[in-house]
Simulated scan of single mutants.
Amino acid sequence: MTTAHKEVVALRSPVFRAQFFGPMIDSKSDCIKIEDVKPDIFRLMLQFVYTDNVALQEELSFEMAQHLLVAADRYSLDRLKLICEEKLSASLDVETAATTLVLAEQHNCEQLKEICLDFVASREKLQAVIASDGFSHLMESCPFLLKDLLAKLDSERRN
C-alpha cells in the first residue's frame, strides 16, 4: 500500500488511522493484516472508502449486508454502517428478524434495533419469529433483549 492509499483509508476510518499512524505503530509500515473480514467484504468496504458508495447496493445480499455492517462497525465507518442498516431493515422477514435484532444490539445500531423490535412485536409476525431458528439464537446470545421485546409488546398492547 502506498502512502497515498494509507492516507485515504486513514482519513475515512479512525481505526485505520490508528493502525497506520498511531503512536504504537511503525509509520513506515505499508501493510496491516486484516484477519477479521472476508476478502469480498473487505473489497466492498474499501470500495466504499474510495467512492462513498456501495456498488450495486440494491443487489447486496442480506448476508453480505450483515458482514459489511460488522466490518463497518469494526472500522468506524458510520455512513457505511447506516447503509447496511437500511438494507437489513428493508429486507427483514420472520426468519431474519431475530438474528438481525441480535446483530443490531451487538453493533450499537439503535435504529435497526427499533425496526426489528417493531417487526417482531407485530401480532401477525410474533409467533412465526418465535418459531424461527433465529429466535433460538437470540435466546442464547442476547437473552436480555427479551426485556426490550416485552416492553415493546406491552407498548403495542396499550396502543
Rank of each mutant, 00 (worst) to 15 (best):
L69D: 02
A55Y: 07
S76M: 07
D133V: 09
L80T: 04
L77Y: 11
L68M: 07
L145G: 03
D93W: 11
K113N: 13
P14G: 13
A72S: 15
Y75A: 03
R123T: 14
E58A: 06
T2Q: 07
S29W: 10
S61K: 10
V49P: 02
E140H: 11
V49H: 04
P143K: 09
K87Q: 08
H107T: 00
T2G: 08
T3R: 12
E7D: 07
L103P: 01
P39Y: 12
V15Y: 10
K87I: 08
L60V: 01
L117V: 01
V37R: 05
F62D: 04
A65V: 06
M1I: 12
S155T: 14
S13R: 04
I32A: 06
F42M: 00
A98I: 06
F42W: 10
L126T: 06
L153C: 15
F20M: 05
Q19K: 14
M45S: 01
L68W: 14
F20T: 06
H5E: 13
F21W: 12
E63G: 00
C116T: 05
L145C: 08
L60F: 03
D118I: 01
D36G: 13
K81T: 07
K6F: 10
P39G: 11
A98S: 09
V129M: 07
V8D: 03
D78M: 08
K33W: 12
V120K: 00
P143C: 10
A97D: 08
D30K: 14
F135E: 13
A65H: 07
L101A: 00
A10Q: 03
A65P: 09
D36F: 12
E85P: 00
L11I: 07
R157V: 10
D154A: 10
L82V: 11
G22A: 04
Q127P: 04
T2M: 12
H5P: 02
F48L: 02
R157E: 11
E105T: 04
E95L: 06
A90L: 13
Q66G: 15
E7C: 14
S61G: 13
V49C: 05
K38Y: 10
K152S: 03
R74W: 06
F16W: 09
A128D: 15
S136P: 02
S132Q: 09
Q47V: 06
V120M: 04
S155Q: 14
E140R: 15
V129I: 03
R79M: 04
L117M: 01
E59P: 02
H107N: 04
L60Q: 03
D78A: 11
D26C: 14
L153M: 15
R157M: 07
S132V: 12
G134E: 02
A65M: 06
V37L: 12
V54W: 03
S61F: 10
